[in-house]
Nucleic acid binder design. Structure first.
Length: 268
DNA sequence: ACACTAACCTGCAAGC
DNA sequence: TGCTTGCAGGTTAGTG
């Protein structure tokens, strides 16, 4: 599920609720997600104040004086803040309590993770590419990185070593808006088209953040409500439906083991 | 170095 | 009704 806008939405929702609050208790209800959640997390964090919440790619970083908690939402993760006495929901695996409030990670498929690191130097963060919403990410960057890349353009923009945060939904949408066929090889795309693509990736991600992200199945905002960007999707999940631009038919095919949706008339 | 595959999980919807 | 199949927002270890 969660791509950059959903993680950013989560960060923005959490910040006013728990920042500068002191951890009173950490509880693990299930310690095996993608990785094992450190069993001693409670003894590490108890009594420490949460200083900041930031995002790097699709990772959430909870900063404490003694180190950072790294959280990834995987495919089906979401975080909410509730009264600590509220009954657990199925797949609530991890919670950090701040007085009478509890921040809970729910993740049915358990592809997410919760880790502790003394600083931001961490294996999971070290090799990440640029943030798409910064000035570093532009047509020159994409053009330079794509020389000799035979892989298709969709895999290229979803590669976290190139640019972080662009997942399957927003990759499909950005390519549609840019009129680029997802099957094109990255090396064959001109600098002019990369200019359009980089601009559209930024715009779409920003619009999705404004809308509170895209809710398909599992994702919710921290108050449990849904993001409504799904109403704005032009191709993702719209197989056999009508293209909003040309009235042609939206096609779906499997690419890099993921569903790709595109309009063959519009995207060349 | 690059490109592609399989695997990790649960839940839901469609088809029979 | 119930079984089977396919599919879902991500990432990475392994293979050629």
């Amino acid at each position: 599920m969660p791509e950059l806008p959903e993680v950013e939405t989560t960060k923005n929702g959490l910040t006013p609720l728990i920042i500068n609050k002191k951890i009173t208790k950490v509880v693990l209800h299930r310690n095996k997600l993608r990785f094992e959640i450190p069993k001693n997390l409670s003894s590490i964090l108890d009594g420490h104040t949460l200083r900041d919440i930031t995002r790097r790619g699709k990772y959430l970083l909870f900063t404490f004086d003694i180190g950072i908690v790294i959280v990834h939402l995987g495919m089906s993760g979401s975080i909410c803040v509730v009264d600590k006495n509220q009954p657990l929901k199925k797949h609530d695996h991890f919670e950090m309590q701040f007085g009478n409030k509890s921040m809970r990670l729910n993740d049915p498929r358990r592809f997410g993770c919760v880790l502790f690191s003394k600083n931001t130097k961490h294996k999971l963060l070290d090799n990440l590419g640029v943030e798409p919403l910064t000035n570093e990410f532009d047509n020159k960057y994409l053009f330079d990185k794509s020389r000799n890349k035979k892989q298709n353009i969709k895999a290229f923009i979803m590669d976290n070593k190139i640019v972080v945060g662009v997942g399957n939904i927003y990759a499909c949408e950005a390519l549609f808006q840019s009129k680029i066929n997802p099957k094109n090889q990255a090396k064959d795309i001109s600098s002019e088209r990369y200019k359009i693509l980089s601009k559209n990736i930024k715009t779409i991600l920003q619009q999705a953040i404004q809308a509170g992200g895209t809710t398909l199945q599992d994702f919710t905002k921290v108050d449990g409500s849904a993001g409504y960007f799904s109403q704005k999707l032009n191709v993702y999940g719209r197989k056999n439906q009508t293209c909003v631009v040309c009235n042609g038919k939206i096609m779906r095919f499997i690419q890099n083991q993921r569903s790709s949706f595109y309009c063959p008339q519009c995207q060349k």
